[in-house]
Nucleic acid binder design. Structure first.
Lengths: 99, 99
DNA sequence: TGCTTTGTTCGGGTGTTATCGAACAACAGG
DNA sequence: CCTGTTGTTCGATAACACCCGAACAAAGCA
């Protein structure tokens, strides 16, 4: 399995990031990652099937919100906090602290 | 023309607000309102038809991002900055300062 | 009463996104 | 190898959102 491509912070698009976050399932993923730091897909699957989760991770990854590191058979995801804050200062913090 | 209903800040939903902002046309409206304070629909129409604009204003209004005040035949729109900041501290500022 | 201005509402067409099962691929361990 | 685990990819369906013209509504004014 080849490593994923991750966009550079200068190419993050605000509307793309907002659209990625404007989904309850993906917001759950982001909030969970904030708590645990790093997680693979399986641990985040609630009632949703794997294929749906894989799609949501792809959207989050391609928008720049998270990075995926491959370790063996698992894909470990974590937030790109510094890079997001570099491009959109305060945005992630505001969203993570929102009710 | 009866006045519009505007949601109370406690009922603002993060995903709804993010979805409302995750559209280039609506982001333009929000940025414009930040500059001029208050504006009616017509002054914001660029190349888009009235019906499209009316739709975008409705989305922004129902999500809580702006309020619409009727004055004669004009509908004056302005950002609900304090109320948004009360519910989602820092969110609007982060978005307005983003590239 | 007409006429103009300003927006809304309606209807349909179009494109995008979410969802999910099933099949596939990559890796690790026995 | 063979098997189990972990995710991705594919294909189909359904839901949603955007877009725009046309008709409508409300208010101001001659």
């Amino acid at each position: 399995m080849a490593a994923y491509d991750h966009p550079a912070p200068e190419t993050f698009e605000l509307t793309v990031v907002l659209r990625a976050l404007a989904d309850p399932a993906r917001l759950d993923i982001v909030r969970h990652l904030e708590r645990v730091g790093e997680a693979n897909c399986a641990t985040l699957i609630g009632t949703r099937p794997k294929s749906s989760m894989s799609h949501h991770f792809q959207v989050l990854r391609e928008s720049g919100i998270l990075r995926t590191r491959i370790e063996g058979v698992q894909h470990r995801n974590s937030l790109r906090r510094e890079e997001l804050d570099e491009r959109f200062p305060g945005l992630l913090a505001a969203i993570l602290s929102a009710p």
